[in-house]
Structures are given as structure tokens and as C-alpha cells.
Design a protein around this nucleic acid. Structure first.
Length: 362
DNA sequence: TTAGGGTTAG
């Protein structure tokens, strides 16, 4: 191995320990210095493409991919998954066609990467399913089947999603969590619970997503008992310190038993993030307890939790309801500081706020 | 020795 390749490997190692665009650029520069010679280690190029993609620098990733002197299956899988993650379904599909034209056989990673693209159309997904069945890709691991069931669910095809799940020769904890969540999101809390119980009986260690999934369907007063049972299991399994699970529980109490028990839970938990605050703030707005919204917003900043567009939209709506021009204007200043004035939801809330405060010009 | 799945508020 030449000294320049050794230097590349050292840079690559530093990129993987502290990944950043700043660290990736010198690595990229060195690959350019090497020139388009044959026998270049594709491995290094793949890593740089992957690093750019992981920072959302999809154009840089593609540019480098195009200049690579040689490519392998991993190169194609990296760029296809990068496009899929960013929602560029057409580009992902076009790279998939290029891959096949270059004589590479799609792997489970190619197919699951494409199927997990939010905007992949139904015809292409069905073609991928046929290809996966024909090539036995569902037997390799649980990724393709899980992605397929998620793909059908996103397109509103619940029965196809369930079929994909049931036909899977290999299922993982993620497959179960995903299906539990799909049932919940489609309003089938009882099926979600049946699958969750099956998972418990299998005695595999539950993950935080198992609880998030099953709680996503527990949304009405009649489900409160189920919600409380899940709460018990959360504690039993030691997830009551996990902010993601705790937020799902707070949301469940908001939906099933109203603001009081939800606030009680919110006050008792060891840690809160922006979603915990937004859940309670959203519930306070709905029940028209607008003064408390502003109080909670102030407490949020005292606790060092940064507001986001959801928080600002709720708080501005409360100021509009209270017709409190002074308070709203000061929140507006913070919105500008956070560069959220052009956010469509926040911006619309501001327009509504000024109109309700008879301040048409602003 | 590089590529892949489940996530709460709105």
C-alpha cells in the first residue's frame, strides 16, 4: 500500500470518530489528487460518498460517485440509500436502473433502501417485491420484508402490509415493532396490542420502539385501561427513564384521560425535551388554558429546552386567543431570531395573531 | 473494510 493510501486510511479513521463535512473535505481532496487511476481502492471512495450522504450533502456525494474511477455494489447501494433517505425517489430509481445496466445484482440492501423511500411509487414498489421474491432476498434477513410492509402501509394498503408481514420467512424485533406501530397508526389498537402481547410471550428483550409503537394506537378514553397496563410494563422493563417512551405515555394520558393526569406525569418524569413540552402545550391550547401556555413556554426556556416551530405556533395561537399584543410581539422577535418566520405554520399563526389583535398592517 | 429497517408533539 502506498503512503498516500495509508494517509487516506488515517483520515478516514478520523472521519469516522468525529464525522463532519470539515473532516471529510481533506479526504475528498486526497481522492481527487490520486486522479482517476485504475486499481484505486473503491473502499475509500465509498466511504467518502457515504460520509457526504450522512451529512445530507447529497450533491457532493453524487458528484464524487460520478467521478469514481470504478464502482462496486456498495457504491451503488450507498448512493441509492442516500437518495431514498432524502426523498429523491426518481434519482434513487434511476441509480437502481444504472446499477442493473452495469451488471450488478441488487442485494437486500438495495431493495430495502429503495422500499424505505417515502416517495417511491406503488408500481415500483410492486416490481421490487417481485424481484425480491424471485431472487430469494426475503430469506437473507428481515430488512426487505420489514421495508416492504412499511412501504404498503405508507401507501394506505394495510392488508398488503399485513400479508407482507405474515409471509416473512424471517422476522426481527424491528419487524414486530414496525407492525405494532402500523396497526396503531391505522386505528387498530387491539391488533397492535395482540402483536405486542405476542412479542412479550416470545421473551425477546423489548425495545423503546415496542412501547412507542403500541402506545401510538392508544388514543381514546375506552383504551385507558390498556394504556395503564402498558405504563406498568414500561416501568417493569425499565423504560420509564427513556424520554421517547415517556413522551408517548404523556401523549397517551392527554388523549385517554385529559390534561390533569398528563401534567402529573409530565411533572414527575426525570427528564423533558421539546416534544414533552409541546405535547402539554398542545393539550393546553386545545382546552383553551391559554395563560398556562405562556407560563409553560417561559418555564421551557428556564429549563434550557429550545422551542421549535411547533412550540412557536402554539404560543402565538395562544397570544392571538388572549389578544395579548405585547406578549405576541416579543414571541415574534424570538421567532425571527430562530429564523422560523418563513415556516408556513408559524408564519400563518403570526398573520392570524396580528389580524385578531386588530393590527392589520403588521 | 465501506451500504440497510422501528420513533413521540405538530
Amino acid at each position: 500500500m502506498s503512503s498516500i493510501h495509508r494517509r487516506l486510511l488515517v483520515l478516514l479513521k478520523s472521519c469516522s470518530t468525529t464525522p463532519s463535512v470539515r473532516n471529510t473535505k481533506p479526504l475528498h481532496a486526497l481522492t481527487i489528487t490520486l486522479g482517476p487511476k485504475p486499481n484505486q481502492p473503491i473502499f475509500l471512495y465509498n466511504n467518502v460518498v457515504s460520509l457526504y450522504a450522512s451529512f445530507g450533502e447529497i450533491l457532493s456525494a453524487r458528484k464524487l460517485f460520478d467521478t469514481m474511477p470504478d464502482r462496486n455494489v456498495v457504491s451503488f447501494n450507498t448512493i441509492i440509500s442516500a437518495y431514498s433517505r432524502c426523498g429523491y425517489a426518481e434519482e434513487a430509481w434511476s441509480m437502481f436502473l444504472d446499477m442493473r445496466n452495469c451488471g450488478f445484482r441488487p442485494t437486500p440492501i438495495t431493495v430495502s433502501g429503495l422500499l424505505s423511500c417515502d416517495l417511491l411509487n406503488i408500481c415500483e414498489g410492486i416490481q421490487l417485491q417481485a424481484l425480491a421474491v424471485k431472487n430469494g432476498l426475503l430469506f437473507a434477513d428481515a430488512f426487505v420484508g420489514t421495508a416492504l410492509s412499511g412501504f404498503y402501509s405508507r401507501h394506505g394498503c394495510l392488508s398488503e402490509s399485513v400479508c407482507a408481514f405474515e409471509d416473512m420467512p424471517r422476522k426481527s424485533i424491528v419487524t414486530f415493532n414496525s407492525m405494532i406501530s402500523i396497526f396503531g397508526q391505522h386505528g387498530f389498537a387491539e391488533y397492535s396490542m395482540v402483536l405486542f402481547r405476542e412479542l412479550v410471550r416470545m421473551e425477546v428483550p423489548l425495545s423503546r420502539y415496542s412501547f412507542v409503537g403500541v402506545l401510538s394506537g392508544v388514543l381514546s378514553e375506552r383504551d385507558l385501561e390498556i394504556g395503564e397496563q402498558i405504563h406498568g410494563l414500561v416501568i417493569k422493563n425499565g423504560f420509564d427513564y427513556n424520554v421517547l417512551v415517556v413522551n408517548s405515555l404523556i401523549n397517551m394520558y392527554v388523549k385517554c384521560s385529559g390534561i390533569r393526569p398528563a401534567v402529573k406525569m409530565f411533572e414527575e418524569v426525570p427528564a423533558r425535551d421539546v416534544v414533552s413540552f409541546n405535547t402539554i402545550i398542545g393539550a393546553l391550547v386545545k382546552s383553551e388554558k391559554l395563560e398556562r401556555v405562556v407560563e409553560l413556554f417561559l418555564r421551557m426556556s428556564m429549563d434550557g429546552v429550545l422551542p421549535n416551530h411547533t412550540t412557536f405556533a402554539h404560543v402565538i395561537n395562544s397570544c392571538a386567543g388572549l389578544q395579548n399584543l405585547m406578549c405576541g410581539k416579543s414571541i415574534h422577535a424570538q421567532i425571527i431570531k430562530n429564523a422560523l418566520e418563513c415556516d408556513v405554520v408559524v408564519g400563518s399563526a403570526l398573520v392570524d395573531f396580528y389580524a385578531k389583535c386588530d393590527n392589520r398592517e403588521d
